[in-house]
Computed example of a mutant assay.
Amino acid sequence: MIVITVIGLASAAAVLAMPDPRGRLVDEGARFAVRVRAAHDAAVINGRPVSVWVTPAGYGFDERRAGQWIALAEKPLRVSQWGEGTQAIIGERARVTFDSTGMADRVLTVPLRRDRTRITVTIGADGSAQVDG
């Protein structure tokens, strides 16, 4: 009986120590922040406004061409869904636009949640993106 109890406790400890197969939420936030920074850089390099949009389910990037917003399709700026169980805690849709000098039209804070874990990604007016977790 004692052996079975020890095996049960060891099994429970092993399961609790296993990493989440979805990855860490902070890593997902960091991936988003790096892509935001790539959008900032694309606006400066191409001399055209680039926007980042965020919804509860995912995010994407558009470039302003000939008076219209055109979705960017090349990596790393294509539309992405948040990972399984992750949700941005915002309204329907939020957008930040970087001008050709890299300045953002506003500051945006994107709270991310998965289960009981929460982090925020803040896009600054200077085009920076910072993860706070």
Rank of each mutant, 00 (worst) to 15 (best):
L16M: 14
I89S: 05
M1P: 09
M103Q: 12
T5Y: 10
R31Q: 14
F32C: 10
V107K: 10
D132N: 15
R106V: 09
R65T: 11
V26D: 12
P19G: 00
V50S: 04
G102N: 03
D99M: 01
P19D: 03
D27F: 04
V52I: 06
A14P: 05
E92M: 11
A71L: 13
R22E: 11
W53H: 07
R78Y: 13
P76Y: 09
L25M: 04
R95W: 07
D115C: 08
V34Y: 12
R35N: 01
A10P: 01
R64A: 13
L16H: 11
A17Q: 12
V44D: 00
A17Y: 05
D126Y: 04
L72K: 13
A57L: 12
G83M: 07
P19L: 00
L16F: 13
Q81F: 09
G91A: 02
E63Y: 10
A57Y: 07
R93F: 05
G133Y: 06
R31E: 15
R22Y: 06
T109Y: 02
A38K: 05
D99R: 07
M103A: 14
G127C: 08
E28N: 02
R113A: 10
F32T: 05
D115F: 10
G83L: 08
G91W: 00
V121T: 07
L112F: 05
G102H: 05
T109R: 15
A38F: 03
G124V: 08
R116H: 12
V121P: 03
W69G: 01
T122H: 01
G8A: 09
R31Y: 05
Y59G: 00
T101W: 12
D62I: 04
Q87A: 11
V52M: 08
G67I: 10
I4D: 13
R106C: 10
W53V: 00
D20W: 03
L16I: 13
Q68H: 14
Q81D: 13
W53C: 00
